[in-house]
Write a protein that binds this DNA or RNA. Sequence first.
RNA 1: GGAGAGAUGGCCGAGUGGUCGAAGGCGCUCCCCUGCUAAGGGAGUAUAGGCUCAAAAGGCUUAUCGAGGGUUCGAAUCCCUCUCUCUCCGCCA
Length: 424
Amino acid sequence: MLDVQLLRSELQAVARRLADRGYIFPVDEFAKLEAARKAVQTETQELQAERNQVSTQVAQFKAKGEDASQLIAKVNAQADRRKALEQELEGIQAKLDEFLRGIPNVPHPSVPAGKSSADNPEMRKVGTPRTFKFTVKDHVDIGEGLGLLDFATASKLSGARFSVMKAGIAQLHRALAQFMLDVHTREHGYTEVYVPYLVTGACADGVSSLAKFKDDLFKVEGRDLYLIPTAEYPVTNFVREEIVPGEKLPLKFVCHSPCFRSEAGSYGKDTRGMIRNHQFDKVELVQIVHPQSSYDRLEELTAHAEVVLKRLELPYRVVTLCTGDMGFAAAKTYDIEVWLPGQQAYREISSCSNFEAFQARRMQARFRNEKGKTEFVHTLNGSGLAVGRTLVALLENFQNADGSVTVPEALRPYLGGVAALKAS
RNA sequence: GGAGAGAUGGCCGAGUGGUCGAAGGCGCUCCCCUGCUAAGGGAGUAUAGGCUCAAAAGGCUUAUCGAGGGUUCGAAUCCCUCUCUCUCCGCCA
C-alpha cells in the first residue's frame, strides 16, 4: 500500500509512474474521497472535542455537588449529528483504505518501462545450453519413460495440474529441496523456518491484495483461511504488527513449503507436465531489511538464488521485469529463467523482488531506527528455487540418449551416491 | 469436547464509571554528581491520524488499554459477541 501522504503531496507524479506499469490512477475518485474525508473528519472531531470538554466539566460539577443537567442537555443536543458523522467518517475511511489497498506499488526509477515480458531486458546469461546429438524429450516423456512420473494417477486422484513422482524422481525432488536449504542456511546465512500452510485473509492481504487476487488462492470453506501460494505469505508476516529492534535487521529466512495455486485464468497454458501445477514445492528466501540497504539486498538475494543453478550446472539468464510485467506489490523484480531444452526456451524458475515499504505498510511491520523512532521495514523475497521446475530442468538438461538422466555432482551425496536415474 | 483464568505502553505490572493516555518498576535518552569501575540524583521517554503553518518549529484536536458492538454526558473499568493465550479433565497423530 502506498503512503497516503505521498498521494496527497505528489499525486500527479505518482499517477505518472503508475501509468508506466499500465495502471490508470483514478485521480478524480481519490480527490473526491479526500475532500469528503476532510470535511467530515473536521466536523466530527470538533463535535467530539466539544463532548469531551463538556464531560470533564460534568465531572467537575458533580465533584462539587452542583447540577450538571444543563451541560448534559447540551451534549445530548448534538449527539445525533455527531453519531451520524462518526458513521459517515467510518464509511469514508473504509472506502479510502480499500482504495489505497487496491493501488499497485510504484516502480523503482531503475525499472525499465515496457508493456509485457517481451520488453524485459536481459541482465546476464550464465552457462551455455548443451547441444544434443539426439532428439530431446521434454520432462514428461523422460519421466514417464523411466516409469518415475505418473500423471495418469495424479489426474485420477485430483484432476489436471497435479503430479505423482516415484522412486528416483521422488527422491531427487526431496534431495533438491534439501540441497537448496543447505546452501542457503550454511553459506548464505538464512534461518530455516517451518510454517503453517494455511494463513488468514489478513496475512494474505499483507503481502498482496486479497480483494484482487483471491481467485488465485484455494480457500478453506467456511473459514478465514487460505492455502499459501508461496511461503512468502506466512514468512513475511512474521513481522506483521511487530516493531523489530533495529539491530536485529536484516532478518533472513529460508523456507521449504508446498505452494498451492488455483491457476484461474491460465487455462490452456502449460497444461502438460509439472510446469504449472496446482501444487508444487518451493524453497523461498525472505529478507526483512533496513530501508537504506534494500536494493543492495535485492542484488544479494538474487545472487543467492543463482548459486543454486550454478551448482546444479543449469544454464540460465536473469532479466529485469519491465514496468508492465511486474507484480502488484513489487517495486523491482529480477526473474531468473532456466533453460529448458524440451521447450527450447528460458522459463522462470525464480522471481526476486524488493517491495520496499509496500508490504510493511499493509502489515504494519516496523523497526526502531537509529533515532529511536519507528519506521517501516523493507521486505524482499525470491525463490531459491522453485523445486518442481528445477526438477524439470534437471531432467531435460541432463537427459541421455538411452532415456536415463545424469545426476549432477552436487546432488549425488543426497542420493546415496547415485550418478544417474535409469529405468528399472 | 468439558471446566476455569487471563489479554493494559519497548518490557513487567497497577488500575472496577469521572481531570486516566493510563501509578510504579525495568529498559532507553539527556543532564548532574562521583578521580576508574560500581553506586547515586534530576529530567525526559507510546502509536496513528486530522486541522493550522510556504516549510520546519509550534499550536489546537481525534482515536487507540486483544477485536467488534452496546449502555452512559463520560468506559481500561459495566453488558454482549468474537479471537487468542494459559491451567485442569477428556480425546488423539
